[in-house]
Design a protein around this nucleic acid. Structure first.
Lengths: 204, 204
DNA sequence: AGTATTTTGTATCACTCGCTCTAGAATTGT
DNA sequence: ACAATTCTAGAGCGAGTGATACAAAATACT
């Protein structure tokens, strides 16, 4: 019983994601949000509880729609080493293709809200660790399949790759060029190409 | 002629840096600034022109007092490879020692201000490139002295190191542990340790 | 139909924002 | 002493902030 919602919840959340993504948490006002979500201010508070709760919801939706979906798509191919390589290639393409240079919502949030909100900070750290865990799974799988040297520390390398990913996302916001971003990534990706087994036999 | 300034300009700018560093540009109010700088709001506008101009001044002072000074100190030792290593070691120590987890003012600004202010964005990119140029000089010097393999691309590696540095600064704000930060940095530093000359003769 | 329940639009709350105005205090030159 | 100049303190500006109050509108259940 009761009156039905008149707006599309998915479209609304997408609008909220766009706002937070482009301007950050603090700089986004509730009125901006409501306008981009196509709803009134009262509906926003009625449906989502407030700005902070809406942000948490938007973060979770972004994780599902953007991060996890891409990870799943790449992991399904069954080519773990290529998955990492493609992940970074797509990252560069997306960073350069976005005229707003929004970067990554997680990375932006890590600087914007995480230091001042322990709860949201933990959530952001968790989302970032999902990406790191994806790297780790890819490395372990590639090592099992013989595509990556077993001498590489999978955990350490996954942390390194996440660090490089985060750095690239930040640099992309200062209008870094494709050449710059590729230069940042290349040494990390070449890590995965150390000779796999017999020492003394280079790949080149 | 005229009344003399009653406050210490250096102390005032330091207070401004602290504010911007801890809370970011947008989240810092002029009233917060004035209080931490020990001056009144009118004096702030009289002496620095306004919030944005004060931020630019603070950025420049931070570059001089923190970034360039550390670079000069490390470069004076004449041990370029060790300079890079020490730079990252100090970065980790400083990141963990700061209870506020403020990270790096440049990195924070790259996400907070750069995308919405082209002029300040260029300044931030310039400051970050000073650090990258330091890495490049160290690599070139170490290659000339025989400490780093000449096969390493100095420009590419300097971009990579800057990317890793930026990533570490961001991750440090989400309360990353020493182990995590060292794991992010280690593969990048090991890049500098590839066998220097004669192929076929490993270092280990 | 009638009632309970939920959503929606509008108006508004107290508060903070960056910034400016004005009056007075402090200095130097004549 | 007096004028000219610069700095300081505090009040206050219009605009915008997150959040709420309230009544009209729309639904489901009896």
């Amino acid at each position: 019983m009761g009156r039905l919602k008149e707006f599309d919840e998915d479209k609304a959340i997408d609008g909220a994601i766009d706002c937070f993504w482009a301007r950050g948490y603090e700089a986004t006002s509730v009125r901006d949000l409501a306008e981009h979500m196509g709803i009134g201010g009262a509906s926003l508070y009625n449906a989502y509880g407030g700005k902070r709760a809406l942000f948490a919801t938007a973060l979770e939706r972004y994780a599902d729609r953007t991060s996890r979906q891409r990870i799943a798509r790449l992991e399904e191919t069954g080519r773990p080493k290529e998955a990492i390589r493609t992940f970074f290639a797509e990252l560069i393409d997306r960073s350069l293709a976005d005229p707003q240079r929004r970067g990554c919502l997680f990375v932006n949030s890590a600087l914007d809200v995480a230091p001042h909100d322990a709860e949201l900070g933990k959530a952001v750290a968790g989302y970032l660790d999902e990406v790191r865990a994806f790297f780790q799974r890819c490395i372990v799988a590639a090592q099992a399949a013989g595509g990556i040297s077993a001498r590489l520390d999978a955990v350490e390398t996954s942390h390194h790759l996440l660090g490089v990913l985060v750095g690239m996302r930040v640099l992309a916001r200062t209008h870094a060029s494709r050449e710059t971003l590729e230069a940042v990534a290349r040494p990390a990706l070449q890590l995965l190409d150390v000779p796999v087994a017999r020492p003394g036999k280079g790949k080149r």
